[in-house]
């Protein structure tokens, strides 16, 4: 275990998290907009996504292993599992943020003759932005933690040290994975929190 390996695995870890969170945002954004316009679909979808969230992360990795295309040992499986986890906080905060726009503000927008698209881009999304960003922040921080478990199915990242350390009963090796992951989570929390405050009204 050398510094070079810590740096390499940290970069790999960060890469896993970035891809998973980015993909989750890309999936969540249009879904959230649709869900804010369809109350019944919203209840169902958020219910299902909630259930996914309650399944222990190690079990999700396990479930995905035997699946064709998605499954198998390696990074793709790990990323799919991480996306599933990042999805709920992002989707929920997008929906809550958009629905939370003050009724008087929304009514004024309609009454001034704004189209549905203009209201979405000009009113709802800007006003929901801090809430949406908070969802992305929560998802990022938890994904940094969950991603350590990805090493169990060959996902790589800082979890590699953690599992190796457990196998060798070597605390130093475990910490070589755990400490950078913790620092990464704190840094992400601070950075995204700062952006969030800058865009609050």
């Amino acid at each position: 275990m050398r510094l070079a390996e810590i740096v390499r695995l940290s970069a790999e870890h960060l890469w896993l998290v970035a891809i998973a969170v980015f993909a989750a945002v890309v999936i969540a954004a249009p879904s959230a907009v649709i869900l804010t316009r369809r109350p019944r679909l919203r209840r169902w979808t958020l219910g299902v996504v909630n259930v996914v969230q309650t399944v222990p992360s190690l079990a999700v990795f396990g479930f995905l292993l035997p699946l064709p295309f998605l499954g198998g040992v390696g990074k793709p499986t790990a990323i799919v599992a991480l996306i599933l986890y990042a999805l709920l906080p992002i989707l929920r905060n997008m929906v809550v943020g958009i629905l939370g726009v003050d009724a008087g503000v929304r009514e004024s927008a309609v009454a001034m003759g704004m189209t549905d698209g203009q209201i979405l881009w000009g009113v709802e999304l800007p006003l929901a932005f801090p809430t949406i960003l908070a969802g992305i922040r929560i998802a990022t921080v938890t994904t940094i933690g969950t991603a350590t478990i990805a090493a169990a199915i060959g996902g790589g990242g800082l979890g590699t040290f953690v599992f190796r350390g457990i196998a060798m009963a070597d605390t130093t090796t475990i910490l070589a994975g755990a400490v950078p992951a913790a620092l990464m989570a704190i840094a992400a929390d601070e950075a995204l929190g700062w952006i969030e405050r800058r865009f609050s009204f």
Binding site: G104, E107, S108, V110, G113, M114, F201
Partner: peptide
């Protein structure tokens, strides 16, 4: 057309309904 109709009339509510952003 509802959009054209609404742009031919101003609308004022309590607290103004201003866009906070």
């Amino acid at each position: 057309d509802p959009i054209r109709l609404r742009r031919r009339m101003g609308y004022v509510i309590q607290e103004g309904g201003l866009f906070p952003h």
